[in-house]
Amino acid sequence: MNIIEQMEQENMRHDMPDFRPGDTVKVHIRIIEGNKERTQLFQGVVIRRRKGVMGASVTVRKISHGIGVEKTFPLCSPRVDKIELVSEGRVRRSRLYYLRNLRGKAARIREKGIN
């Protein structure tokens, strides 16, 4: 396993903030259209983090025009320009799939530190 670990250490990104499920993050996605490149923002709640080094990913959920949208980003992908931590949420589980069944006020997540 040594060579693989070494390869992953060389290629992994160190610029990711420490965020957890329940946190609200802003993901800057690099989008290539033809030969032009622009950055798109996707802000939402982290509902899942998958562990790993090169295979690590994060799923972010937001409500867009009344419709729930989820996007999964590989954390080491060069398409992900950067991830900003907007706010930390207080949740009691690591997979927040229950948010899919909740709407509006019920789908809010308490902020950390506020009781």
Partner: peptide, 9 residues
């Protein structure tokens, strides 16, 4: 096995 990313992601 592992995974690598090309420049276009």
């Amino acid at each position: 096995m592992t995974r690598i990313y090309s420049e276009d992601g």
